[in-house]
Computed example of a mutant assay.
Amino acid sequence: MSILRIDSSANTETSVTRTLTDRIIATLDDTNITVRDLAETPLPQITHTWAVARAVPGEDRNAEQKAALELSDTLIAELRAADTIVIGAPVYNFSVPASLKAWIDLIARAGETFRYTADGPEGLIKGKRVIVAFASGGTPVGSEMDFASTYLRHVLGFIGITDVTVIAADALAMDADKTIANANAAVDALAA
């Protein structure tokens, strides 16, 4: 088993999602872990060169186009190599952080992680498990104002990943102790 850990909280010292992802990783008890810390090493936004390059068949790309897609190719390779993906996703303004959105933009590529068919889009990243640690001050997971978990579930499903478990610490501003205790219990249940 191999794990891809993605941290997206800008808070690198007292982050609830980072604490939860630590606990999730410990519960999974795997030593083959790739860490992608999007706060410590931010990803670039997609550019015109990138957008053009992704539409050019691989064998026809020039050196500049290959260079533009190099990081995207690396991120997709990390995703493909992982059996389990653990994502720390704080809720910023009702959605995922820009750092996590940049990762999604770089891995969601036609012909690589999904393809278009006569029956519609088909995800190409299959057989993966995702565990998402969500934290928010007061945006309840699954509520009308939760665009973060619904978006993440949708985009993961779009690329073929439908086995998604959400660990929610989603009422930190109301009762942090109870919220964290509930999230920790959900992490503990992963091992059961």
Rank of each mutant, 00 (worst) to 15 (best):
T34V: 14
S9F: 05
T14P: 04
A55R: 11
T14G: 10
L20A: 09
R18C: 06
T84E: 05
V52P: 01
T34C: 02
I24W: 05
Q65V: 09
E70F: 04
E59C: 00
L79R: 11
A77N: 12
A81F: 01
N62Q: 07
T19D: 14
L28V: 06
P42I: 10
L20K: 10
E13M: 11
L4V: 10
W50T: 08
A26F: 01
A82I: 04
L79H: 06
L75S: 03
L28H: 09
L4T: 10
T14Q: 14
L69S: 05
R23H: 12
V86H: 12
I46E: 11
T49S: 08
T17Y: 11
S8M: 11
Q65S: 06
V86K: 13
I76W: 07
A68E: 08
L20D: 11
A51S: 14
T21M: 12
T19G: 12
A53E: 05
R5F: 04
A67V: 06
D29C: 07
E78Y: 08
A63L: 06
T31N: 14
T21G: 11
I46S: 10
S9N: 04
P42K: 10
E40Q: 15
K66C: 11
I25C: 10
I76A: 08
A39I: 06
T19C: 02
